[in-house]
């Protein structure tokens, strides 16, 4: 029931989960052998910014529009073109529909003739 037959090899989430549990146990084992001087809720656990004052939560939270900034800068031309096509005008949506009907018809009839 849990095994999915594929052409190259079968996939079983149960075996995957078993392997995952084994890895987690190993990770826990190594973690237990780590630093024991950690003290919860002391100055040890506070944010340290090279001695600078730590900004308020609101200021240090990176907002969504900053995430992947480099990716969007690199893909600027792609996004400019794409966003320009998304006009938000319903007339344009219907024009796309008509254009697609025409393209599909041309493809189908050309293939029919050939």
């Amino acid at each position: 029931m849990s095994i999915l037959g594929l052409s190259y090899s079968p996939w079983s989430p149960i075996f995957w989960l078993l392997a995952f549990v084994v890895v987690m146990i190993m990770a826990y084992f190594f973690r237990r052998r780590g630093q024991k001087k950690y003290k919860k809720d002391t100055a040890q656990t506070k944010i340290f910014l090279c001695g600078e004052e730590v900004p308020e939560a609101k200021e240090r939270h990176i907002r969504a529009h900053n995430v992947y900034w480099g990716f969007f800068e690199t893909m600027k031309e792609y996004y400019d073109t794409n966003i320009k096509a998304h006009t938000g005008i319903i007339n344009d949506y219907v024009i796309w529909f008509l254009v697609l009907i025409a393209i599909n018809a041309i493809i189908l009839f050309i293939v029919g003739i050939v």
Binding site: E56, A57, K58, R60, H61, I62, A64, V67
Partner: peptide, 14 residues
Amino acid sequence: KAFYSAFMGAELPE
């Protein structure tokens, strides 16, 4: 991105 932006980070005052 959505997970980080909405759920992660310190509690916001608002």
